[in-house]
Nucleic acid binder design. Structure first.
Lengths: 353, 353
DNA sequence: CTGTTAGCGCCTTCAT
DNA sequence: ATGAAGGCGCTAACAG
């Protein structure tokens, strides 16, 4: 940078300003400096900038999984949100482990991030404290809470679960199972909504909920990271959906619908029905959650709850950018909502949708 | 850090050493310093470290997509690879655009990364030059090349495409279509293998290849990033698979098998067959590529080519770590191979697999 | 094995 | 609107 300044015949600070706040430098000098930069092929050193300014320009984003489509979509929204900005994204994979999340929060905070994005509302007390004192914008995503750390963008899983269940009840299904892989707090929210809807309709009964314990899940898919020895949990395969469905059917042969905690499980249920000759939606209603691409294209098309993952990620970054720019970042609690997509797989009542 | 040094009654450098190369500090001092660190709640400043050492500890990873399962798996392997290390991952999304990749290469290199991981072998000349002069390990992934920038880990798409096609031919299919979304160089490799196999068997004929132009793809899914105005290309939905299959069938009603460039398309083809009452595998063989979870669980189970995405990401980081540690990082060209998974969807010959 | 002396490259404060 | 010092927190050399 000193070279550029010398070459352009100005002070270093002017070069610095041209780079960061061009509008504060006179038109002429700006051009001269820019030419010098190009001529000398100068590239600024981000570490030095971060050190001197004590702002790294990094947004830390902690997600529970990199592979689940849901969070891949969120990440895409986040990356698109910083597109064309100086901001960088630093992703951390918590693997659905609050302690790992806590560790990563600490790790990320060392870098004096410009902002933090964390998934859900189940941070450890320690993690929450660190985030509260981080002195940077913090956005929780993919859930709602009346008491966010700083700011939260997501939707109500309980509400979504309730509405989909009401749709199933509305279609005349009466013995509706709930299928899920390993439960996290968001899955539990969905299940809670399901239960409330059943209770309200007087349709709740024992033995309808089928999920899988962490231990048996590991057994089912015991891949282990060779480096760390940690399990690489892969929830929600179609094979697991088939398995859970078989179990649910064994527990209640009169079952007439399943609400799956996610679409992948629902796809497995569909395949199991195909193999057994169970007619969908006549003999069995199938509903999923998230509304991935294949739900609409399936045969029969599968009902699901559409969630706005991309938008959540994108909005989180948008709010952060506003806040960083000193503008109003919008409400502390932002509900992006969900939509029940009713399709053939639950169209038992004559009115097909 | 000065505080810690004072508190412990040692020089700053000793604190620094305790943090980075503990084995070079005497047992006693190490304990004293560690206690001081804990007492004072000291956290090192990564920017300062990066500036002073001119090594950032960041591995830049450029992938064409964050949402495609293939690259999500690769990323998971990469993240798992640095687990428990001081290394950090910085991901860039090139969106299958070589120019964007070039831009990101330049951007990332400014940060003096400890290593770079880039996808495929189609870097622009400029990007390639920058990477060659980066002075850090560079690993290309997910393809093979006799002339890697530095080091390459992947598999032969052409070979994989050829072997799957040979399997189809072996099962007695004679009019085999190739379906793909937007083509990239790896898709093209698969298609090349497919064509060679067909030619070798004298089964090639015009009108068997159905892919989709970028323009019509955009038209099909014209979501645009509101921030940048760039299209958010989502290749390979099941709906696209159904569409391409219909087109292929219209072009050749006697079609008896399809080799899909990826599993998602294959899933769409299966659903289209279900709807039309086309029997699989008797009337129509279906094969995909990547062997995602649902292929095995589908009804009928779907044949595919298993690729080792996670291992590719993990091996890339492993090689980088070896190289950074000054040890032998293994061969410059590492072929992790592929496996043709033959399942019911292509089991036309009596021998079911 | 430990400490001292100099920066790493940039941004801040204060002048002008 | 521009410039001159000083320091951000740490590590590289070298010295002891």
């Amino acid at each position: 940078m000193a070279d550029v300044a010398a070459y352009a015949g100005v002070g270093m600070i002017t070069v610095s300003r041209v780079l960061r706040e061009p509008h504060r430098v006179s038109e002429t000098l700006r051009r001269i400096v820019n030419d010098a930069i190009r001529e000398l092929n100068y590239v600024p050193n981000l570490s030095a900038r971060a050190l001197a300014s004590t702002r790294s320009g990094v947004i830390g984003a902690l997600v529970p999984s990199l592979t689940q489509v849901v969070f891949a979509d969120v990440l895409r929204g986040i990356y698109d949100g910083v597109d064309g900005t100086e901001l960088q994204i630093q992703v951390g994979n918590t693997r659905y482990d609050p302690l790992e999340e806590e560790r990563l929060v600490g790790l990320f905070l060392r870098q004096k991030p410009s902002a933090m994005i964390v998934s859900g509302i189940n941070q450890t007390a320690q993690a929450r404290r660190m985030l509260e004192q981080a002195g940077c914008p913090v956005v929780q995503i993919m859930d709602l809470s009346p008491d966010p750390i700083d700011r939260i963008i997501g939707f109500s899983h309980e509400d979504a679960g309730r509405r989909m269940t009401e749709h199933l009840i509305d279609q005349g299904y009466t013995r509706i199972a709930f299928l899920s892989g390993w439960m996290n707090s968001r899955s539990a929210g969905r299940r809670g909504g399901y239960q409330k809807a059943l209770e309200a309709a007087g349709l709740d009964r024992p033995g309808l909920i089928h999920s899988i314990s962490e231990s048996s899940l590991r057994h089912l898919l015991d891949k282990v990271n060779p480096a760390t020895g940690r399990p690489m949990l892969e929830f929600a395969t179609p094979a697991l959906g088939r398995e859970l469905f078989r179990r649910a059917l064994a527990a209640d042969p009169a079952l007439d619908a399943v609400f799956c905690n996610n679409d992948i499980l629902a796809l497995g249920v569909l395949f199991e029905c195909l193999q057994r000759g169970i007619r969908v939606p006549e003999d069995m209603g199938i509903a999923g959650f998230n509304d991935l691409d294949f739900m609409e294209a399936a045969e029969p098309s599968l009902s699901s709850v559409r969630t706005h993952r991309y938008r959540v990620g994108h909005s989180a970054v948008a709010a952060i950018r506003e806040q960083l720019a000193g503008r109003s970042p919008g409400p502390r609690i932002l509900d992006v909502g969900t939509e029940v997509m009713t399709r053939r797989s639950t169209a038992r009542a004559t009115r097909r949708t």
